[in-house]
């Protein structure tokens, strides 16, 4: 799994390429912490088009990240998601927490 960060002003695009397994979850943690250290980031867009599945601890890390963004009155969304991951997220109602947009 690879993670790419693209910053444009106060918007950060996080592209997750590959499935989030136990090793990928650790890498995700590291990258999200890096984003959290950037005070000027207010809007985060995840692109998970090539991520087909994530283990539950990976979802936990996304939840913690959302709580951080929400606490500083920022925005978080997923824009671009694989069909299988979309189904996975819908089943646990993540769309009630932040926008999940298929592109």
């Amino acid at each position: 799994m690879d993670i790419e960060l693209e910053k444009d002003g106060s918007t950060m695009k996080i592209i997750i390429d590959g499935n989030i397994d136990t090793d990928g979850g650790h890498e995700l943690s590291v990258q999200l912490q890096e984003v959290m250290e950037m005070d000027d980031v207010e809007h985060v867009i995840f692109n998970m088009t090539t991520c087909r599945t994530t283990i539950s601890s990976g979802i936990g890390k996304l939840m913690n990240f959302y709580k951080y963004i929400d606490a500083k009155k920022g925005k978080m969304e997923i824009r671009g998601i694989s069909d299988s991951l979309y189904t996975q997220f819908m089943e646990i109602h993540l769309d009630r927490i932040f926008p999940i947009i298929r592109e």
Partner: peptide
């Protein structure tokens, strides 16, 4: 169990989602 009555607080909980993934 994640269903229509699941609260936002439960969804935000960082753990406990594995069971749903297994049933898929």
């Amino acid at each position: 169990i994640f269903d229509e009555d699941t609260s936002e607080e439960e969804i935000l909980d960082i753990s406990g989602k594995g069971g749903r993934l297994i049933s898929r």
